Amino acid sequence: MTLDTDKIDDASLAILSLTLHDGDRVWKGIDWNITDRLFEKGLIHDPKNKAKSLNLTPEGVAHAREILARDFSKAE
């Protein structure tokens, strides 16, 4: 089976955004390969540091909100 890493990255970004605090900080408790890809896509700032959280870029925050609304919201 070949996984669609773009879909995995989108879901991960949406999940990360659920822990948003201090404006753009999120807890970085996901696979490092995913955070590396999100960084390469310009959706988060460089994740390679000792902090237990990371920062989403403005584009990352906007994209995460779009994903949450599109893929994870309930129809009312």
Results as ranks from 00 to 15, higher is better:
L3F: 00
L3D: 03
D4Q: 05
T5N: 00
T5R: 03
I8S: 01
D9A: 10
D9G: 00
A11S: 08
A11I: 09
S12K: 04
S12Q: 06
S12R: 02
I15W: 13
L16W: 03
T19A: 11
T19D: 09
T19I: 05
L20P: 01
L20I: 09
D22R: 10
G23Y: 00
G23S: 06
G23Q: 06
R25Y: 04
R25D: 01
V26W: 01
W27E: 06
W27T: 08
K28L: 13
G29S: 13
G29N: 15
I30G: 00
I30H: 05
D31W: 11
D31L: 06
D31C: 07
W32H: 15
N33S: 13
N33E: 15
I34F: 06
F39I: 06
K41T: 06
K41W: 04
K41P: 01
G42E: 12
G42F: 09
L43N: 09
L43M: 13
L43E: 08
I44S: 02
I44A: 04
I44L: 10
H45N: 14
H45R: 14
H45Y: 15
D46M: 10
P47H: 11
P47K: 14
N49V: 02
N49D: 15
N49A: 13
K50D: 15
A51G: 06
A51I: 02
A51W: 14
S53K: 07
S53P: 03
S53Y: 15
S53R: 07
S53C: 10
L54V: 13
L54D: 02
L54A: 08
N55C: 11
L56P: 01
T57S: 10
T57K: 07
P58F: 01
P58A: 11
E59F: 03
E59M: 07
E59R: 09
G60F: 03
G60M: 05
V61Y: 02
A62D: 11
H63G: 01
R65P: 00
E66Y: 10
I67T: 11
I67K: 04
L68M: 12
A69I: 04
A69P: 00
R70M: 08
R70C: 05
R70A: 14
F72V: 01
F72W: 13
S73G: 07
K74N: 10
E76C: 05
E76H: 09
